[in-house]
Each structure stands twice: as structure tokens, then as C-alpha cells.
Design a protein around this nucleic acid. Structure first.
Length: 279
DNA sequence: GGAAATGTTTACCG
DNA sequence: CCGGTAAACATTTC
């Protein structure tokens, strides 16, 4: 469940189910399941208690009653499942307990781009998330600074908002949805946009992701589900992403799909006119 | 068989 | 060194 709203959905699910629980065992089952930059083997967190579940952008971590935190990035297909009825693609396995209760927490990941790691915290942030920018929902998110940063770049606006070092949490779905809502063409040059337009994109991103969180994120299939296996419902609210050929909900013009960085961009050719400068 | 899929890292270039 | 771009990573499905 990969973008900010899906990661937040997982964070809430873990929080509701496992806060205060003890991690009895932590086992790595796949070579790539542990981030190479992990500061300790996975079993180093055995015996710890889960105090807090935190998130920045797409990074998720368990605060424990020990020096180390359990950090996770879901990549393209990672998921946390509590007592699933299958072992499909389980890359790491945790046994958790509270009193006499005992449950299995699976980290599953079909495409193995996701990972877990054991890391120290620095001012509350794990080492691997240090270079990651704040996401739009953090109280200290400095929108003015982000606008200035984006305005100074000679890249497509979509590239800028996907850059996790500028603003974190936005992925391909919510980038397309944010730009559609803001009426900005994904290939517009960032520096060619006004501060007002860039602000609109950021405001729309927060708006879209907030609404997605409210309904449990976007689930197209079984790959993107909550810790209890439930799907999110935001897919029915998508206006641009995956809507090629469908009428734009605003003006009726057919949504167009174009290639973008080994993937796709979806936009309304009438509502979203490109604003481009060569250099 | 080719293309595409909700992500990040790395090498490479000017 | 910097900013920017493109390929690579792995697996599955259409």
C-alpha cells in the first residue's frame, strides 16, 4: 500500500491493533527483506514493547522501549498483515503478544522493493528517513520554503512533487490527482509556474490525500490492503489516474495518458494546459 | 512476448 | 560538486 494515504492507513491499523504489545520474535525470511543499511539484525528488537507508530511521507516506524526502532518502507507492494490466512510473499515474520494473547505480524511483499530495518532515531527520525522532506500533514511543514524550492527547479512540476526530498508522501496516483484538481499540466516547467499555482498544487495534494485517508486509501486489488485485509475505497473517487478515455468530471473532455518516467501521467487536455519554458 | 504496475537508488552526463 | 535524467532493481498480470 504505497503512497502516503495507504501508509497512513497501515499505520493506523498497526496502532489500533498492536500498541503496547510485545515483540516476542522477529525473523527475516528473505534476503532483501532487511534494508542493507539496517544498523542491527532484525532479531535485535525481540523482547521490546511497541510504544508508538509513526510516519513521515511513505516511511513508517515502530517506536520501541529500546534504543532501536523498527522501520519499514512498503515500496511498490509491501504490506503488513495480522494473522493472515496465507504465507504468500511473507518476507519477515514477527510474533507479538499481550498477556496470554499471541498474534503473527507478517511483512509481505510480492515485488521485494519494500524493506524493514532496525535503526536508531535522531530527534525522533530514523536514519534512513533523515534525507526525506516533511510531508504536508506535519505541523512543521514549511509550505513557503517548499514553494521556493520548487520554483527554483528546471524540471516538470510532476517530477518536483514526486521528489521525496522536496515534499514527501506523494506518488504517481496522488500526483496525477493533485495536478488534475489544481488544473496544472504535469509537464509544466516548475519554474514557469507562479508561486500561487505551486501553492495550489500543494494545497490540492493535501486535500486529495486527506480525503483518501478518510476512506482507507486506494485499493485496486489485493496488493493494497490494510492490516486486517480490508480494501480502501478511494479508487471510486479518482478523477484522472487510470481514467484514460473517460470523460473529465469537470469538462467532459477525454482524459489522456502519456508516458512519464517508465510510467504514466493522466490529465485532462482541456483543463490542464502546459506552461513550459526551455531554460 | 511486450508493456505496465501506487517506488527508490544508482550511474551517468553536462 | 551540482542538478537533472534514465536505467535498474523483481515479480506478476494483462
Amino acid at each position: 500500500m504505497p503512497e502516503l494515504p495507504e501508509v497512513e492507513t497501515v499505520r493506523r491499523g498497526l496502532e489500533q491493533n498492536l500498541l503496547g504489545w510485545k515483540i516476542q520474535s522477529a525473523t527475516q525470511l528473505h534476503l532483501r527483506a532487511l534494508n542493507p543499511r539496517s544498523e542491527a539484525p532484525l532479531h535485535a528488537i525481540a523482547g521490546t514493547k511497541i510504544l508508538e507508530l509513526r510516519r513521515r511521507g511513505k516511511f513508517l516506524w515502530f517506536v520501541l522501549d529500546r534504543e532501536y526502532a523498527l522501520v519499514a518502507h512498503l515500496g511498490m507492494s509491501g504490506q503488513f498483515l495480522i494473522n493472515p490466512d496465507h504465507d504468500k510473499h511473507t518476507r519477515a515474520l514477527f510474533t507479538v503478544s499481550r498477556g496470554f494473547k499471541r498474534e503473527a505480524l507478517h511483512f509481505n511483499d510480492q515485488r521485494t522493493f519494500g524493506w524493514v530495518s532496525v535503526e536508531t532515531l535522531h530527534d525522533g527520525i530514523p536514519t534512513s528517513a533523515m534525507p526525506i522532506a516533511l510531508d504536508p500533514f506535519e505541523p512543521k511543514f514549511d509550505q513557503e520554503a517548499v514553494i521556493t524550492n520548487i520554483k527554483g527547479r528546471h524540471v516538470k512540476i510532476k517530477t518536483a512533487i514526486l521528489n521525496q526530498n522536496i515534499v514527501s508522501g506523494i506518488g504517481n496516483i496522488y500526483a496525477d490527482e493533485s495536478l488534475w484538481l489544481a488544473k496544472i499540466h504535469p509537464e509544466s516547467t516548475a519554474s514557469a509556474l507562479s508561486r500561487t499555482e505551486i501553492k495550489r498544487v500543494l494545497d490540492c495534494a493535501a486535500d486529495v490525500m486527506s480525503k483518501a485517508i478518510d476512506v482507507g486509501g486506494t485499493s485496486f486489488d489485493e496488493l493494497y490492503i490494510n492490516v486486517n485485509g480490508e480494501s480502501g475505497y478511494f479508487d471510486i473517487s479518482l478523477n484522472a489516474y487510470g481514467q484514460e478515455g473517460e470523460p473529465c468530471p469537470r469538462c467532459g473532455t477525454q482524459i489522456r495518458r502519456i508516458a512519464f518516467a517508465n510510467r504514466s501521467s493522466h490529465f485532462c487536455p482541456r483543463c490542464q494546459k502546459p506552461k513550459v519554458t526551455s531554460k
